[in-house]
């Protein structure tokens, strides 16, 4: 059994995480290839007299950091819902084929329609991710619904898509895949207000629906029979939550690329902080996801300017060992 944490603990963890997010967000505004003093940042943000850096602060770093917050939160809640529904700690948006499906669609688009502008890339990604998830979901409901089968089909679909991606990348000249390759590593390079404008209504809407519905997860987690007894239409609610989680992850991936590890890692980190009850787990996981992606993007810009290191590379590189540490620590408190 996981440790039972009090609501007060959840509140204080939430406050500390929020404070960290605010600090990292402010830090993110000062991180980048061009060194800008705090005075100039404040002048620009509040339109005060004196030197300003309008483009870099307001059109580049601010929308990028906001997008990182949004996408981080969405990937985290998507991962938490999927782990809750599948009752499987290994689950994440990746397991239902979203990442690989989106990536294959992007590669196919580049290969088959080379003259299509790269602005269509997000559309291809959403379609690919959703289609792959749909195949996995239908497969898991063939004849009788089975969550174990869902995971296995998800892995199989992932392998098929990844084989397709590898084939396309190996057999094509590298320059043709310049943009998709950056996207495959999960990067916020060149993202700005237009990307935020394109996605925020949808993502915030889905995020709120997910928050409202997610308290049912604790009931669904009791198991189909118990949940039915408590008046939950398990099949329908499971489908609805899975659909929302799929869309949240597909849209996020379409905007910033394959930021795979966040959806797996954020729920676990949150669980180690406040325990497994979804009422507290979900908000904390969202905060963790936000923090991870903003931090990764800021570090990616600050480590070796003017070279930008993709946020997806950093979340995996530094998130991985930290994730193992969390799991080991959890194991020791549980035993």
């Amino acid at each position: 059994m996981s440790t039972v944490y009090s609501q007060r603990r959840a509140l204080s963890v939430g406050l500390i995480l929020s404070l960290c997010i605010v600090l990292v967000f402010i830090g993110s505004l000062s991180a980048g290839a061009v060194a800008i003093s705090w005075q100039v940042i404040i002048n620009t943000l509040f339109d005060l007299e004196g030197e300003q850096q309008t483009y870099i602060i307001l059109n580049s770093r601010l929308p990028r950091s906001l997008l990182a917050l949004l996408v981080g939160g969405c990937l985290a809640i998507s991962g938490t819902i999927i782990q809750g529904l599948l009752r499987n700690p290994l689950a994440s948006p990746k397991i239902i084929g979203i990442n690989a499906g989106a990536a294959l669609a992007v590669c196919l688009m580049t290969l088959l329609l080379p003259d299509l502008p790269m602005t269509y890339l997000p559309l291809a990604a959403v379609l690919g991710g959703t289609l792959a998830a749909l195949i996995v979901y239908l497969g898991s409901h063939w004849r009788e619904s089975s969550m174990t089968r869902l995971v296995l089909i998800g892995i199989a679909v992932g392998f098929v898509c990844e084989a397709g991606i590898d084939y396309i990348l190996i057999s094509s000249p590298p320059y043709q895949f310049s943009t998709p390759l950056v996207w495959l590593t999960g990067s916020l390079w060149s993202r700005g207000w237009s990307h935020l404008a394109m996605s925020w209504h949808l993502l915030i809407g889905l995020l709120i629906s997910a928050l409202i519905l997610s308290y049912r997860l604790d009931l669904i987690r009791l198991g189909a029979v118990h949940a039915k007894g408590l008046g939950v239409n398990v099949g329908f609610e499971r489908f609805l939550l899975l659909a929302i989680a799929t869309l949240l992850a597909s849209i996020s991936v379409s905007v910033v690329g394959v930021l795979g590890f966040v959806g797996l890692m954020a729920p676990h980190i949150a669980r180690s902080l406040v325990g497994g009850s979804h009422r507290t787990l979900i908000p904390i996981a969202i905060l963790v996801g936000m923090l991870l992606v903003v931090l990764a993007d800021a570090c990616g810009r600050a480590i070796a300017p003017p070279i930008e290191i993709s946020a997806g590379i950093l979340t995996a590189l530094f998130g991985g060992p930290f994730f193992i540490y969390i799991l080991l620590k959890m194991g020791s408190t549980e035993s």
Binding site: M118, S178, V182, W189, P305, P306, I307
Partner: peptide, 29 residues
């Protein structure tokens, strides 16, 4: 301004250019 794949946009902006020449395959997005 960094790599051809992901040139630093803020460094580009800080140079206050009056013309940018970019590549179709790499920089359309």
């Amino acid at each position: 301004v960094g790599t051809r794949k992901t040139p630093s946009l803020e460094l580009t902006a800080s140079l206050k250019p009056d013309l940018i020449i970019a590549d179709k395959k790499r920089h359309s997005a």
